[in-house]
């Protein structure tokens, strides 16, 4: 009787540890731990950002000025560098805010390669800002590849418009 009880306990412990292991596997998922789903967390992030940008007003709009790139290039033009220098000034003025750089490509390449390429463009701007003394912890990047064209057309002008970094002030 005692033995069977011990066996039961051992099985229970084993089951619990297996269950724990199962949870550990999902660790790192933004939906885990906090009990909220990824969607809820994303919604909360976006709302907090929206409030911050409202508070920032004109500075937020100035930070959002895009930079554009030449074909197959992540090099920053003189104009782009000027644009980023101004952003660095604003970021120094508002030490509490962070900046997200979104890299985008034109429609000619293919989606997956462009997702990797868009990251290069985002990193180019982030690196330039870091070189101007903005802490790396205040800069992050997201590549949209060619998934968010400003102009879905197939003209050279449309392509040029789409090869860009966008910027979002965040908390």
């Amino acid at each position: 009787m005692i033995r069977s009880k011990m066996l039961l306990m051992a099985m229970l412990v084993l089951m619990l540890s297996l269950a724990g292991f199962g949870c550990a596997k999902k660790a790192g998922g933004p939906g885990d731990g906090s009990g909220t789903s990824w969607e809820e967390q994303e919604r909360a992030r976006l709302e907090q950002e929206r409030l911050l940008r409202e508070k920032l007003g004109a500075a937020s709009n100035e930070l959002a000025q895009m930079v554009h790139f030449a074909l197959d290039s992540s090099n920053l033009s003189a104009e782009a560098r000027q644009n980023l220098t101004r952003k660095a000034e604003i970021l120094r003025q508002y030490p509490q805010i962070k900046l997200i750089v979104e890299g985008n490509c034109d429609q000619r390449g293919t989606a997956e390669y462009n997702l990797a390429l868009g990251e290069r463009r985002a990193q180019a701007a982030a690196q330039y800002l870091a070189n101007l003394g903005i802490g790396a912890d205040r800069l992050s990047t997201v590549s949209y590849g060619k998934e968010r064209p400003l102009d879905p057309g197939t003209s050279e002008a449309a392509y040029a418009k789409n090869r860009r970094d966008e910027f979002r002030a965040t908390y």
Partner: peptide, 30 residues
């Protein structure tokens, strides 16, 4: 899964909502 802060890995296992995993990279491609 491209979110506002970076890319995530989604895994759907044949039913229900997919699991979303954060990886140590802002880029999670192909």
């Amino acid at each position: 899964l491209i979110g506002s802060r970076g890319h995530y890995l989604g895994v759907w296992s044949g039913g229900g909502k997919p699991q979303v995993y954060t990886l140590p990279s802002t880029n999670v491609v192909s």
